[in-house]
Simulated scan of single mutants.
Amino acid sequence: MASHNTVLLKTDIPYLKLHNKGKVREIFEIDNNLLLVATDRISAFDYILPNGIPNKGKVLTLMSEFWFNFTRELTENHLITTSIDEIDKIIKEDMEMLRGRSMLVKKVEVIPIECIVRGYLAGSGWKEYKENGTVCKMKLPDNLKESDKLPEPIFTPSTKAESGHDENISFEEAVKIAGRELSEEVRQKSIAIYKKASEYALTKGIIISDTKFEWGKYEDKIILIDEVLTPDSSRFWPLESYSPGKPQPSFDKQFVRDHLEQSGWDKQSSPPSLPEEVIRITSEKYLEAYAKLTGEKIPE
């Protein structure tokens, strides 16, 4: 059933309590823990698109597992297991649907700021820099080009706004939300993880332009949660074609966004279906990023 081309758009597990449903993930409660299930849904411009991307949920889950293990000496994290067979609450009939795309994690108190680290000038950072020479109100050197590498990675937090759009905020605004000590700790840890991961990724032919981390309080510790360094939470660029001064091709859903931008869709109404070709290429991009970074293929 779960061949390489079937997509999972929603999970129905009636015997587990639904804790939360996001754009891509469904989160269920199991005892004092949570089961994060990554579907193959894809969102763009705050809409969930009608088509799924084959294997996307597995890439997000297994890539997060890879990075949780990779960054373990820098920080603890919320991952308990990705092995669905170890979770006794799941009935046999659902194991196939959930295998490879589910993480059993600790339940934490989520810290309400998104911790973005940028090593390169792209996206909303580039937009702000063009206008004011700043990113999240931080002054940057003059004469930088789009996609330029920054002198040092910078921490540019954002908030979860009510409307669903994240809003970039300054570090001082993050302090108002989360407190100084906590904000400084997540800033330091986020930059350390970004540096270690991006140095490793370069050896695999991938530039991590920027990425978003989420943190939570567990007992008396701050631990890494959510997904980590995936194509959904990061900009991955191929190193071999990197050339500053313009946008870079990427291993994420930018390809889908570009297609939608050119499709004539007004971004106010239900999004159109994606052509087979766009779905196939997007799936291949996710799988290629996973294979390059981990040296593994997604298990059939």
Rank of each mutant, 00 (worst) to 15 (best):
P157C: 06
P157A: 09
S158K: 01
T159G: 01
K160N: 09
A161R: 04
E162G: 14
E162H: 13
S163R: 13
G164I: 02
G164R: 06
G164D: 08
H165I: 10
D166F: 00
E167C: 04
N168F: 07
N168W: 10
N168H: 04
I169L: 05
I169A: 03
S170A: 05
F171W: 05
E173T: 09
E173W: 07
A174L: 06
A174W: 03
A174G: 12
V175Q: 08
I177W: 01
I177A: 01
I177Q: 03
A178T: 14
G179L: 05
G179Y: 02
G179I: 02
R180M: 12
E181S: 12
E181K: 15
L182W: 02
L182T: 12
S183K: 00
S183N: 03
E184A: 05
E184G: 01
E185F: 07
E185T: 14
R187T: 00
R187H: 00
Q188N: 15
Q188G: 13
Q188S: 15
Q188Y: 15
K189P: 00
S190I: 00
S190D: 03
I191M: 02
I191A: 04
A192V: 01
A192N: 08
I193W: 03
I193K: 01
I193A: 05
K195L: 14
K195A: 08
K196T: 12
S198Y: 08
S198F: 13
E199G: 11
A201Y: 10
A201F: 11
A201T: 09
T203E: 15
K204M: 07
K204L: 10
G205W: 09
I206E: 09
I206Q: 10
I206S: 09
I206D: 08
I206R: 11
